[in-house]
Simulated scan of single mutants.
Amino acid sequence: MTIIIFVLVLWYGGLFFQSFFLHRYAAHQVFTMSKTMERITFILTWIFQGASYLSAYGYGIMHRMHHAYTDTEKDPHSPSHDANLFAMMWKTKTIYQDINKQRIEVDQRFTKDVPQWKGFDQFASSRFSRLLWITGYVLFFALFATAWWQWLLLPLTFLMAPVHGVIINWFGHIYGYVNFKMKNTSKNLFRFDFLMMGEGYHNNHHKHASRANFGVKWYEIDMTYLVIKVLNSIGVIKLKRA
Score class of each variant (00 low, 15 high):
residue 122 Q to R: 14
residue 131 L to N: 09
residue 124 A to P: 05
residue 171 F to H: 01
residue 178 V to S: 13
residue 170 W to S: 02
residue 123 F to H: 13
residue 172 G to F: 01
residue 140 F to G: 06
residue 139 L to S: 14
residue 147 A to E: 11
residue 137 Y to C: 08
residue 127 R to Q: 13
residue 145 A to Y: 05
residue 179 N to V: 07
residue 116 Q to S: 15
residue 154 L to N: 09
residue 171 F to W: 04
residue 152 L to E: 00
residue 118 K to F: 05
residue 169 N to K: 02
residue 173 H to R: 08
residue 164 H to Y: 09
residue 127 R to I: 12
residue 147 A to N: 13
residue 148 W to Q: 12
residue 169 N to W: 00
residue 167 I to V: 13
residue 160 M to V: 14
residue 152 L to D: 00
residue 135 T to R: 04
residue 146 T to N: 10
residue 152 L to Q: 00
residue 167 I to Y: 03
residue 185 T to R: 12
residue 135 T to A: 14
residue 161 A to I: 14
residue 182 M to G: 08
residue 130 R to T: 14
residue 188 N to E: 00
residue 131 L to Q: 07
residue 140 F to D: 07
residue 116 Q to Y: 15
residue 132 L to H: 07
residue 164 H to E: 02
residue 175 Y to P: 00
residue 121 D to T: 10
residue 187 K to L: 00
residue 190 F to V: 04
residue 130 R to V: 13
residue 187 K to C: 04
residue 136 G to H: 12
residue 127 R to W: 13
residue 173 H to Q: 10
residue 162 P to W: 07
residue 133 W to R: 03
residue 139 L to W: 14
residue 178 V to Q: 13
residue 143 L to G: 07
residue 118 K to Q: 14
residue 176 G to H: 06
residue 126 S to Y: 09
residue 176 G to L: 03
residue 190 F to Y: 13
residue 131 L to Y: 03
residue 169 N to P: 00
residue 158 F to G: 03
residue 174 I to M: 02
residue 155 P to G: 06
residue 153 L to W: 10
residue 135 T to V: 07
residue 138 V to W: 02
residue 189 L to G: 04
residue 167 I to P: 02
residue 175 Y to I: 04
residue 139 L to Q: 12
residue 122 Q to H: 11
residue 128 F to V: 15
residue 163 V to E: 00
residue 176 G to S: 08
residue 131 L to A: 04
residue 171 F to A: 05
residue 144 F to A: 04
residue 174 I to W: 01
residue 145 A to R: 06
residue 123 F to V: 15
residue 131 L to D: 02
residue 189 L to M: 04
residue 162 P to V: 09
residue 180 F to D: 04
residue 184 N to W: 00
residue 184 N to P: 00
residue 150 Q to R: 08
residue 181 K to V: 08
residue 147 A to K: 13
residue 173 H to P: 02
residue 159 L to A: 13
residue 151 W to L: 04
residue 154 L to H: 06
residue 183 K to G: 10
residue 153 L to R: 11
residue 187 K to G: 00
residue 190 F to A: 09
residue 132 L to Q: 04
residue 183 K to V: 10
residue 149 W to L: 07
residue 121 D to P: 09
residue 124 A to K: 09
residue 176 G to I: 02
residue 171 F to L: 06
residue 161 A to L: 10
residue 151 W to I: 04
residue 123 F to E: 10
residue 189 L to D: 01
residue 117 W to N: 15
residue 129 S to M: 12
residue 117 W to R: 14
residue 169 N to T: 01
residue 157 T to G: 09
residue 130 R to C: 13
residue 164 H to D: 03
residue 177 Y to W: 04
residue 187 K to N: 05
residue 180 F to K: 10
